[in-house]
Write a protein that binds this DNA or RNA. Structure first.
Lengths: 246, 246
DNA sequence: TGCCGCCCTTGCGCTGGATCAATGCACGGC
DNA sequence: GCCGTGCATTGATCCAGCGCAAGGGCGGCA
């Protein structure tokens, strides 16, 4: 068994005996996570500080503005990263997928909350421990920094999208970028799984749930996509790309 | 004279003799720039690689997707950071003010273009040179990374703003955040200078120039602000903050 | 001093997406 | 099998912000 199942803590829980049989070396996401820049001996060092942690659908990994006691590698599943406005309006900053690192900036507090969209497996480190390791390994810091730069790029794309694109363009762009992310993680297919609900997409794209639904229906009717349970099949990539390009 | 004025290159230009008389040690923005984490001897090392560079209003410091040959500290003035959509729609990602570092992520290409909103003074480094120094100074990399984390936070705020706020909230939030930035740079006042035009604000907030103008007029009529040439006086901070809070 | 060009402001009608409301549909519990 | 609950779709109406067009103010320049 890969992870413990509840004998040693509250939910969400983590146990010292919760690691892969062969440890980080055969970790599913090693080659696409920050760990990819580490040598085997370094990996062992980090492994000694790590615990696996699983969440069920809907559980929160951490909350916005909460002290960041831990940082995480996502191993399996997807999470929703949200920010709240004082009055309750919500924005979904993005979705974390396997290989993503949560707590990239190593800041004292989490700037978003993270909730599981389905069953999730993560690899958890105490932030202090992780930061201490980073201090001794400049190449790990470089790797984090590169990822931060990448995140910044994505954030800029998203700002452009939110500020200057129409509802249809937003939805088309979202589907394509999700496909691209799955592809980078080795899951290449024209059928894109949508682990999040319509409301999450809406809150990610600055739209309402009704508009997202209408746009998906419209794309379906136009045979650009095919709506399937739990996801979408992208039928006419060139057309979608034309929409996304604007 | 602090900088050269055109005897040694095309515009924009940089000259080896363009440094402050006493070098980085008495640099106006030293304490608020990335350089604040450096010791005096390190500062000298960096200074040897630096050149001052000035721009006039409207000149571009670099363009989107251009190879990032250089990175910059902004010393004086303000720049507009923009991204273009293939069809010409524009989004202003933000504005760079004194103390800001351009090229934070040390990536191979600039993800935005940077244009001077008025006379600008910068401190320029060849990216390779700067990256080489960073390699030898982990605390400098840490400082860059912290700034990247801060940028990421700002980007998230902006996404929330673009996706979920009304025109009035956007404008109020923008004015307050600009004030806060000036304050952090030591320029605290209820009169906020607006070095950018209405179109730039509009493209930053995901609005049209007309809507920005209308909202400013409305706030003025409501005595929440007072429009003055080249800027705005914030008359009713509590009210503005209430609007910004949503 | 007067003209020109640039930006900003304002009015007005239009529209994309929001809002409100009803219905459909899958899944779990009993 | 039947109902309840939560999510998705669809339709009808509304309205915030857009697009267009007409002024207005101001600085530069001859």
């Amino acid at each position: 068994m890969l992870v413990d199942t509840g004998s040693c803590g509250r939910i969400p829980h983590a146990c010292h005996h919760g690691r892969s049989e062969n440890g980080c070396a055969d970790c599913k996401v090693r080659l696409i996570s920050v760990c990819s820049v580490l040598e085997l001996d370094e990996l062992e060092e980090l492994e000694a500080l790590s615990h696996h942690l699983t969440l069920d659908k809907g559980q929160a990994l951490f909350g916005q503005d909460e002290p960041a006691g831990f940082v995480f590698n996502v191993i399996e599943g997807a999470l929703r990263l949200t920010r709240l406005l004082p009055d309750g309006r919500r924005h979904v900053m993005g979705f974390a997928l396997p290989g993503d690192f949560l707590g990239l900036a190593l800041q004292e507090r989490h700037s978003v909350s993270a909730e599981a969209l389905g069953p999730v497996k993560t690899c958890r480190f105490a932030r202090q421990d992780f930061a201490a390791v980073v201090e001794t390994k400049p190449h790990l810091l470089r790797s984090l920094h590169e990822r931060a730069g990448h995140e910044l790029n994505l954030a800029q794309e998203q700002m452009l999208l939110l500020g200057r694109r129409t509802a249809e363009e937003k939805v088309a762009t979202f589907l394509l970028s999700l496909r691209a992310r799955y592809a980078r993680a080795g899951h290449s297919s024209v059928t894109v799984e949508l682990p999040m609900g319509r409301q999450d997409m809406a809150d990610h794209l600055g739209l309402t749930i009704e508009t997202v639904s209408r746009m998906l229906s419209r794309l379906d009717r136009a045979h650009a996509i095919l709506l399937v349970p739990g996801g979408v099949r992208l039928l006419d990539l060139p057309r979608l790309e034309a929409m996304a390009a604007g």
